[in-house]
């Protein structure tokens, strides 16, 4: 992999006008190539590499070399400010591992960012030491280019680390949605979802799908959506409730909505939504009684001296 990167480095200047002799791009590229070993050695002692590669310093140095190669390639290609530059692709996975390792230890994004920024001074010092006799213009442009390049590296690390975090959040959000949507069987042919907490559009959709799946699995002719524990609904959620009722009907089941609080009833009226086609009951118990009655199941209260006594 390292060999490929160097090959790439040698090949690119011939193809692109950016890396001409004496240009800052060429100067920085040559410098990174020349000082690869020293830079990797210095980086290995910086916080980022010390904390990620805790076991072996050699491993840290090797990782540093790969990053230097990538930077050299990007410098010569003239895309120092572009996080999508081809050279970064090679090290993206490694950088993401480094960023993720730091994030896992509880560091804030800005702390991780500072860790990466700490890699910049050692390289700049080496560059300045390397070009004592260079024309002032070239020196200034070369240091600027290197600074930009290190800034882009910082961006790439942050981006990969954030992506990792986002993926984790997405996974957990999905798990939470599933946990928060227990469909329970109340009786043969009756299923219910007691909803607690705020309903948003995504959750209403999960609820809708889970309830309708349960209708099929349990062969339930009645599905009860209990929203006693839902503080408010917005228009989108109210529409989802009505769509659930309509979809249940198409499948041959009846969906009863129970526990509509006065505030929610008011909202529904304000929104001008027509719940006329929806069967509603005040409480989950009322909804269950309604379903049992329609299923032809009778409930008999044992009289005194009857079943209740031994």
């Amino acid at each position: 992999m390292v060999g490929n990167a160097i090959e790439e480095l040698n090949r690119v200047p011939e193809q692109e006008a950016v890396g001409q002799q004496g240009s800052p791009a060429r100067e920085v590229g040559d410098f990174l190539h020349r000082r690869r070993e020293q830079i990797a050695q210095r980086w290995a002692d910086e916080t980022l590499f010390r904390t990620v590669f805790t076991v072996s310093r050699d491993e840290a140095v090797e990782a540093g070399r790969v990053v230097v190669d990538a930077l050299a390639q990007v410098a010569v290609s003239g895309r120092a400010a572009d996080p999508e530059a081809g050279g970064f692709l090679v090290v993206r996975e490694q950088l993401s591992r480094m960023g993720a390792a730091r994030t896992r230890t509880g560091l804030t994004p800005s702390q991780v960012s500072n860790d990466v920024d700490a890699l910049r001074p050692p390289v700049l010092d080496l560059l300045l030491a390397d070009l004592p006799d260079a024309p002032a213009d070239l020196l200034r442009e070369s240091t600027t280019l290197l600074t930009v390049l290190m800034g882009t590296l910082r961006l790439v690390v942050m981006e990969t680390a954030l992506n990792e975090g986002q993926a984790l959040i997405d996974r957990q959000r999905l798990q939470l949605l599933e946990v928060a949507t227990p469909v329970i069987k109340l009786w043969d042919g009756i299923v219910a979802v007691p909803l607690i907490g705020t309903l948003d559009s995504a959750r209403s959709q999960v609820v809708m799908e889970a309830l309708l799946e349960a209708v099929v699995d349990q062969q339930a002719r009645f599905a009860i959506l209990d929203i006693t524990g839902v503080p408010t609904v917005d228009s989108l959620v109210a529409q989802h409730l009505m769509k659930t009722v309509a979809a249940a009907r198409l499948m041959g089941a009846e969906c009863v909505v129970s526990g509509i609080r006065p505030a929610i009833a008011q909202t529904i009226v304000h929104l001008g939504l027509d719940l006329g086609t929806v069967v509603t009951r005040a409480t989950l118990a009322d909804a269950l009684a309604h379903a049992l009655r329609k299923l032809g199941v009778g409930i008999v209260t044992p009289s005194a001296g009857g079943v209740g006594e031994r």
């Binding site: 997405d170 228009s235 529409q239 939504l273």
Partner: peptide
């Protein structure tokens, strides 16, 4: 595939 939040509909 994993839907972005849909914009709020106007009723």
């Amino acid at each position: 595939a994993s839907r972005p939040p849909r914009p709020r509909e106007v009723i």
